[in-house]
Design a protein around this nucleic acid. Sequence first.
DNA 1: TTGTATGCGTTATCAA
DNA 2: TTGATAACGCATACAA
Lengths: 353, 353
Amino acid sequence: MLRPPCARAKALTKPRSRRGGGRPTIADVARKAGVGAITVSRALREPGRVSEDLRRQIQAAVDELGYVPDPNARALASARAEVFGVLVPSLTNNVFAEVVRGIYDSLSDSAFRIQLGHTHYSGLEEERLLQLFGSQRPAALIVAGIDQTATSRRLLETAGCPVVQIMETGPDPVDMLVGFSHFDSGRAATEHLLEAGYRKVGFIGARMDPRSQRRLAGYRAAMEAAGLFDPRLITTTPMLSSVSLGRELLRDALAKMPTLDGVFCNNDDIALGVLFECHRASIEVPRQIGIVGFNDLDMMQVAFPSVTSIRTHRYEIGRRAVAMALAEIAGNRPQQRVVDLGFELMRRESTAR
Amino acid sequence: MLRPPCARAKALTKPRSRRGGGRPTIADVARKAGVGAITVSRALREPGRVSEDLRRQIQAAVDELGYVPDPNARALASARAEVFGVLVPSLTNNVFAEVVRGIYDSLSDSAFRIQLGHTHYSGLEEERLLQLFGSQRPAALIVAGIDQTATSRRLLETAGCPVVQIMETGPDPVDMLVGFSHFDSGRAATEHLLEAGYRKVGFIGARMDPRSQRRLAGYRAAMEAAGLFDPRLITTTPMLSSVSLGRELLRDALAKMPTLDGVFCNNDDIALGVLFECHRASIEVPRQIGIVGFNDLDMMQVAFPSVTSIRTHRYEIGRRAVAMALAEIAGNRPQQRVVDLGFELMRRESTAR
DNA sequence: TTGTATGCGTTATCAA
DNA sequence: TTGATAACGCATACAA
């Protein structure tokens, strides 16, 4: 069953291109398997549409040659890269690290690569990265937050792929949205302190990004509802959050308001710094001061005393975001466009008086 | 100065391809600017090689059309993707998060994208990702550690791009190497405890990866040199490191060896857990037990008491790795193939007795 | 300094 | 079910 000799003599001599690194191409596989290139392509992507026989021959040729499809050529030809673009504000922040881990774990079985970027909490940097990521026609985009600039939002809307905003909830997603209410969680944390009997409850926060602002708004709502709001109870800084900063901020807060008897910390790092400062200053927790953190890092339940915190489902947010995007890619458009994963108040020793 | 009509009538009607998303291409820019496509390409990549006049015209056309080069087409044509492949064991581990941050910061001004992967400390997963990353012909590869499998090592050697191994030092890098000696740092930590007068000095560690093993070896060398080594002083677990695990491991260690009077913790999370357990069990630090951590996270200097730790230059490792790779890409092959960035012992209250 | 012809490795289109 | 052909958008080689 010999085929007629190929018309193009070049193909016979198979002159390894001067450019390609000499890796086997789909044409090499096709030649060895005695089929057309497109059949190889199909056998690899949609095995069901190729006959059993050919599929086996092709697989054998692939294995023998060690053929690996070139993702760049594939992306160029199909106008779609097998890439998830992921944009978060920070990589070192444990919160986003967990989200990203969820995303990676959900994608590790697939052929999708991940293009990760961090914006340093800057809208302009987000625009730049969206431009960069969008230029490769990603399969999906996952971005943190709902406060994109107008330009960023337009880039997302015209990306031509599923877009999942994460970490928040709200009425008007670009496409899909997975997260929880920062306002509600801030209010819940504050109400817990009030119910525990604390009255001069302060808010301590660093780097007040939009989500932090909403938690602060929740705090304020709870305090006002209790008739206890006082702006001097609020201590914030634009600096990056850290344990050492938590320590300093508690000092500042106490200087402004010596009768402070409770603090809702914008995150657990701050809360830990507050706890250590209390140790140093011999302030008893929870008797003299109650402490509530945010995120519920592992260490909060180990701390002495253990620290009350708001548990957020970060890892799960990453997983759900990917699941929704994959569903949409597969053509099963999720009808639930906004998913609220909620939060959980973890009561511990730091507010048990 | 009209050009002769193009032979291919199609080009004149400019039928927006059925495949491409309708984005402007380099040909569109060339047409608008009245130059050849290749000149646009050059103006964008090597502005110096295009005359001032044309460059301006081209830039105007680019701006007007909103042209963004397609990285996939570029990669296919040049057989090189503008991508740095980065492989670390874990993303949530603050140590690698810092390294990755250094890498990102060093690359944020360039056109290079970053392909980040994590191996879960698995050699097989590392192989899989190396295969995946390598298939796109990255501009450079950065991988953690020097303990690659034979297959991984071969993949790195044949990747055809600069390779930087990070986090360690050693005599035989695949290509380049940036890091420090884990053996030396483990020994230094242990010697510090011994010099402070502690005698029953234990080692506590979780998830004993190769680097942890070398730190343990350094610990052992110091203990043996002092004639104080006892295998019962070593407490390890394959579980993932965490603050809560530190607490449990100290309990285990004390159960085995009640006279323990010092611990070198494999990392700061463990050390923090140990510290909290000491608080809970009313063990005085540093009087009854001395504690040394590893990595010197911010919180160690804030903790009460503050905790002695080995500071490692993680961020700088990321930056140097990128700098070396970029130099090699630019043709300035660094003659120093192995860079030892060292470490620093930060003496604090936890070992000051 | 600029342009022409060609190829990069793959997939979409359309026909068989 | 399979294949021939023509893109995909850009850069390399070489010529002018």
